[in-house]
Structure formats: structure tokens, C-alpha cells
Computed example of a mutant assay.
Amino acid sequence: MADREFWSYQPPHFVTGQRCSDNWITVVDPLPSYGRGRELPGKRHQSLIFGSYLTDVIITGANGTIDGQGAIWWGWFHNHTLNYTRPHLVELMYSTNVVISNLTFKNSPFWNIHPVYCSQVLVQHVTILAPLNSPNTDGIDPDSSTNVCINHCYVKNGDDVIAIKSGWDEYGISFAHPSSNISISNITGETRGGAGIAFGSEMSGGISEVRAEGLRVVNSLQGIRIKTAPGRGGYVKNVYIADVSMDNVSIAIRISGNFGEHPDDKYDRNALPMISNITIKDVVGVNVGVAGILEGIHGDNFSNICLSNVSLSVQSAHPWNCSLIEGYSNSVIPESCEQLRSNCRQTSDCYDGSSSSAIHGQEPRDTLSTSRLLNPLMKFTLF
């Protein structure tokens, strides 16, 4: 086999998935970092667009549409008649130099775009659409992946707009493949069932070095979300989120230390996650229900949570609810919870995103110049 492979897919104007699971018959093994299907034990349905161990991958189109025909799958989910975990629209595994651009993805049965165990991934100028009540239709979920850039995307769906993941409980801890060096910018999202940007709850392999800027979240359940639980292990650290606007969001910032189920009863209840070095700054919100619910874990305080220059127009008489956290706040309206006001440290102690390094992708070979013209940004820089 050649040292490098190039795989390019430019769909026609409109592509649809099968409505019937008997026709979508291919099932694949569970991800090693999950140990089972995400919804059901055992295998899982293969995604509509699926590949593994690929190099130099381009999935693009002149704003064409890929429709997953998800309604029937959502019905089976609600009726508890699924035989395997639902398929994603796009899943690439163990792949390098991936570009997904200039397409509309709609009605995914499950998560929309799922790069897992990948590196050098660029997702840009993508629109993702699903009904606001559709279950688990996450937009873009980098999972145990490194050097990822997501920019200029619009997502309206039923769950998290962007969710960074890295494996589930003991399987993610054992597989030990973190998500790191991730850049997110210029994202507009609307979701009734999730957050504009989320971390976890599957984060057992670790998540770090994330920089997100230019986020617009409207008509949504949550703006910024970190979710984990005892048994997850792993960490979420060195996260920098800035330049965020929210309108009609129920909870602006939520950190949950007791969220989500477990894959089985073999998880280690003493495997506590580390949540540290989280900076959220330059946030403006109107029509916000609650400013923040920030809850750590007994015996495992979440530390160095820094809020700066946050101005929220909040409806609740009790805008903040905080427990088992430590950190710092400055110029926060309404005034932040006591746990973030009693610390005398300076803003210089907060994570500023400067440890993230520049990562350069490689261009595909010149023999594929036609495809390269459709995707001139195969070479890209993070941060």
C-alpha cells in the first residue's frame, strides 16, 4: 500500500439515507473507548458516510445537502424499539488530514459529524439542521481527536451544537486517547436540548487545549456546558472561551459533576474527573434565565474556574448556584457566586490559552489538483 492515500467525496446536490433499518443493515463493532454502543450494548449501525484509516480526506460540495432521513430512527428511539445504536451521518475513524466543508447536513439519526481517533481535521462552512425536538442530533463532535479546527458553521438541532468528547468511563480511561488542540470560531447555534458548546459527558480520555471564540447562541437550553460524573476519570483542563453572545438562553453557563449514565457496572466509582483551568470571558447575554449553575463533586472540587467581563441580563432572582468549585471572577454582572469572589488571585492566574501551539496540516498531492481547488484550505493553522 502507498504511504499516503487520498479519498475525496463530492456528493451530488442531494443525498438521502435509507428510511428502513433493514436496508441500513451494516453494523460495526463498538468504539474501543466506549466499550459498547452508546445507546445499547453490543454493536452499532454504521454511519451513512463512514471510513477508517484514511489519509487526506475531503468531503465537500457546492452547498449540497446530505439528508439522513432521521425521523423514523427518532421514532424507534422514543418507542424503545432500536436493535442497535443509531448511526451518525458522518463518522471517520483513525484518519488524518480531513476536510469537511460547504455542505448542509440534515435530519441525522444520531450525531451529525463524528471524527474519532483523528488528527488534522478541518470542518468549515457547514450547515447542520434537525428539528429542535429531535433526540441526540449533536452537530459536530470531535472525539479523542487532536488538532481540530471548526469555523464558520451554523447549527440548529436537538442537542449540543458542538460537543468535545474522549471516551466513556473505564473504556475511555484504558484507551487513553485525549482530545486536544482544538480551535473553534464563528459558530452560530440554536438548540432546545443542549448547549452551544459542550465538553463531555464522555471525557474519560481527557480534553485539553481548547480555544473557542466568536460563538452566537440563541433560543437554547444552555450556552456553555461541562458535564461529567464520578466514574468518568479523565480531565477537562486548559479551556479558553471568549467573545460569546447569547439571546434567549435558559442557563448561560453550566458545569455539572453528576451527569450521565455509565456503560455498565464495571466502572470505578473512585475515578474522579479533574476539571481545572477553565476561562470564560467577554460574554454578553440578554433574555437569560439563570446566569450559572456550577456544581463540582464531593471530594473533587473543580478548580481555577475564571469568569471575566461577563454581562448577562438575567430573569431569575437567584442568578448563580455554585457548590464545590474554586476560582476567580472579575467584572461579572450579575455578581458571581461567593466561591468565585472570595479568591484574591489576579486574572494573570487564569488560563489565557497561550499554551496552545500552531499546527500545520499537509496538502494532498498535486495529482489531485481538481479536488484541491474545491478545498483550498487543506493546509490550515490552528490558533
Rank of each mutant, 00 (worst) to 15 (best):
E91A: 12
E91N: 14
L92P: 06
L92E: 10
L92M: 10
M93K: 15
M93F: 14
M93N: 12
M93H: 13
M93P: 00
M93L: 14
Y94A: 07
Y94I: 10
Y94R: 10
Y94M: 04
S95C: 02
T96P: 06
T96L: 08
T96F: 11
N97S: 12
N97D: 15
N97K: 12
N97F: 12
N97C: 10
N97P: 07
V98F: 13
V99E: 01
V99P: 00
I100V: 15
I100Y: 06
I100M: 08
S101T: 15
S101N: 12
S101H: 08
N102D: 15
N102W: 13
L103A: 08
L103E: 06
L103G: 11
T104S: 08
T104Y: 02
T104I: 02
F105M: 08
F105W: 12
F105N: 04
F105Y: 13
K106A: 05
K106D: 00
N107S: 12
N107K: 09
S108R: 14
P109R: 10
P109E: 11
P109S: 14
F110K: 00
F110R: 07
W111Q: 08
W111Y: 07
W111L: 09
W111F: 11
I113R: 09
I113K: 04
H114K: 11
H114N: 11
P115C: 06
P115N: 01
P115T: 02
P115Q: 02
P115K: 04
V116K: 12
V116D: 08
V116A: 10
Y117L: 05
Y117H: 05
C118G: 02
S119K: 05
S119A: 02
S119F: 00
V121A: 02
V121L: 02
L122F: 11
L122S: 12
V123R: 03
V123H: 03
V123Q: 04
H125F: 05
V126P: 07
V126R: 05
T127M: 08
T127W: 09
I128Q: 14
I128F: 03
I128Y: 07
L129G: 00
A130Q: 04
A130M: 06
A130D: 11
A130Y: 15
P131Q: 07
P131I: 06
P131W: 02
P131F: 04
N133I: 07
N133F: 10
N133V: 03
S134G: 06
P135L: 15
P135R: 13
N136I: 01
T137N: 11
T137L: 01
T137K: 08
T137E: 13
D138C: 07
D138W: 08
